[in-house]
């Protein structure tokens, strides 16, 4: 890959941030989604409403939270609700435009696994588990997924389906009664994939600058479909990069210190 003035992770976070439309309501997962959602809020989407599952609604943290419920999320929120209220009224009540999730494993229909690698009862690696993800994936009107791309993550078959994407494709999701539209984009450090309109299989639609098609293929555990209108993701603008870097710097400073 040629030298760039930004990293692949920065490109991923910024490309993910761009997906979040201003004025929408976003249920934010911790980690990569949280970084992307806050970059969106600090750049093109000042009126995005960020919701974290711990209860804060309309939060505006100055640094990225380490946990899903850091104090600053509550201090800068419009309101803080209880957990039963959050999942019942706000999520299942259909008030979320975008669910923003990470994943350990993903398959070609954007189903995701955050539970276990290997057999559930005799696991090779035990992962943290579901958290809010199954219902975020089910009830948000649209779902964005962001994770780093490699063959361990992009697998032909999930070891465990924690949260449903488009299941085995087509209208499977509707038939199973999930209210939201499901995943609309997967944003990685290499590219952007979106589900095919009819089959719902993930299709490569945009390569990040300098990334080759071969690189994406060898980082994907199945023969990835490629759009006939394959685009190149616009490079990060200076303002996007400076916002992200300032945010990361403030965050590192805030989380340092002695145990």
């Amino acid at each position: 890959m040629p030298e760039t003035h930004y990293t692949a992770d920065e490109m991923m976070t910024i490309a993910a941030a761009r997906m979040l439309r201003n004025g929408t309501v976003c249920f934010v997962g911790i980690g990569l989604p949280s970084a992307a959602a806050n970059v969106a809020r600090l750049t093109h989407a000042p009126d995005v409403v960020l919701i974290y599952e711990s209860g804060p609604i309309g939060t505006k943290p100055s640094v990225l939270p380490l946990s899903i419920g850091d104090g600053e999320l509550a201090e800068t929120a419009e309101t803080v609700v209880s957990i039963p209220e959050m999942f019942a009224y706000w999520l299942q009540g259909g008030r979320i435009d975008f669910g923003f999730l990470g994943a350990a494993q993903i398959d070609r229909f954007a189903n995701i696994n955050t539970t276990v690698i290997g057999d559930y009862r005799g696991p090779k690696t035990r992962l943290p588990g579901a958290g809010g993800a199954p219902e975020i994936a089910a009830s948000s009107k649209e779902v964005l997924i962001t994770l780093r791309q490699n063959k361990r993550a992009f697998v032909p078959k999930l070891d465990f389906v924690t949260s449903g994407g488009h299941f085995d494709g087509g209208d499977a999701r509707q038939r199973m009664g999930l209210p939201g539209k499901g995943p609309v984009a997967v944003i990685t450090d290499l590219c952007i994939m979106t589900p095919d309109h009819a089959t719902k299989e993930l299709t490569l639609t945009s390569l990040h600058p300098g990334v080759t098609l071969e690189k994406v293929m060898e980082s994907t555990g199945w023969p990835l479909k490629v759009s006939t209108h394959l685009a190149v993701t616009p490079e990060p603008a200076e303002v996007e990069l400076s916002v992200l870097r300032d945010l990361n710097e403030r965050t590192a400073r805030a989380h340092a210190g002695q145990a």
Binding site: I83, P84, M86, F87, A88, Q92, N111, T115, Y120, A130, P134, E135, A138, S139, F160, V161, T162, S163, G164, F167, R173, M176, G177, L178, P179
Partner: peptide, 23 residues
């Protein structure tokens, strides 16, 4: 969350639109 709320309410079970398609 639904199961705790049911416990507080003295109901036998909690109900939700959930786990759809999950393993």
């Amino acid at each position: 969350a639904a199961a705790y709320a049911a416990g507080a309410a003295g109901l036998p079970f909690g109900m939700l639109r959930g786990y759809l398609g999950s393993d």
